[in-house]
């Protein structure tokens, strides 16, 4: 099995995403997200080298800087402010959820083999598989956690999955749109983080499973 460096980094990032599910520590999860995003930015850089596209270099840099470093730093600051340690988890225990996630990854492998999109000159099934697996991982992360901060991290993982899909399957998106998406995510996280402060001050917790009380 010989993969290109870009594919290796995508596989590694999908694996890191799966490993993130197993830990309930918010800081560990955040660090995992950071590693995962840097790996994705590396993948972008490698495919830029493969295809000689300078614009993708800028994109790789933007991802590493904005998504890989500023968002984690911002969330780290929030975690410190809100004094969050670890999530208590909901529905499933973390180790079981992690093992279940591997099942989902295997499922994505079979989904990819029956994919309607024609495979490009790259063997993109690795990328597609990593993308689908990461989207599912993001959903699982959001599903089995209680704290709002974990929901944000889960959402970010999911967003990364969508980005990988776009990167490996189309590779035709203009730089300006990608940049826009990255900035959108940044702004979205900022707003979500600020909202979390408000939730914390009004309810004295950020446990989403208790938000059902808001229903009248």
């Amino acid at each position: 099995m010989s993969f290109t460096p870009a594919e290796w980094s995508l596989i590694a990032s999908a694996t890191v995403a799966i490993l993130m599910v197993g830990s309930l520590h918010v800081r560990v999860n955040l660090f995992g997200y950071c590693v995962l995003t840097v790996l994705i930015s590396l993948a972008t850089m490698f495919s830029a080298i493969d295809h000689h596209e300078t614009s993708m270099f800028y994109l790789a840099g933007a991802i590493a800087l904005l998504k890989g470093i500023s968002i984690p730093l911002f969330l780290y600051w929030i975690i410190g402010k809100l004094k969050l340690g670890s999530d208590s988890g909901a529905v499933l225990s973390a180790p079981l959820a992690m093992h279940l996630n591997i099942g989902l990854t295997i499922m994505s492998y079979f989904l990819v083999s029956e994919f309607p999109v024609p495979l490009g000159e790259l063997r993109t099934w690795v990328g597609a598989m990593a993308a689908i697996s990461m989207v599912l991982t993001g959903i699982v992360l959001m599903l089995i956690r209680r704290l709002a901060i974990s929901q944000i991290i889960g959402f970010l993982v999911l967003e990364n999955g969508i980005y990988i899909f776009a990167l490996t399957q189309t590779r035709g998106m203009p730089l300006i749109i990608e940049m826009g998406v990255v900035l959108d995510v940044l702004v979205g996280v900022m707003i979500a983080g600020l909202l979390m402060f408000r939730i914390q001050s009004s309810f004295e917790h950020i446990d989403v499973s208790k938000l059902t009380d808001l229903r009248d």
Binding site: G22, P95, M98, H99, I102
Partner: peptide
Amino acid sequence: PEFISYCMT
């Protein structure tokens, strides 16, 4: 057991 679950993963 959580540590071992990573090994299992």
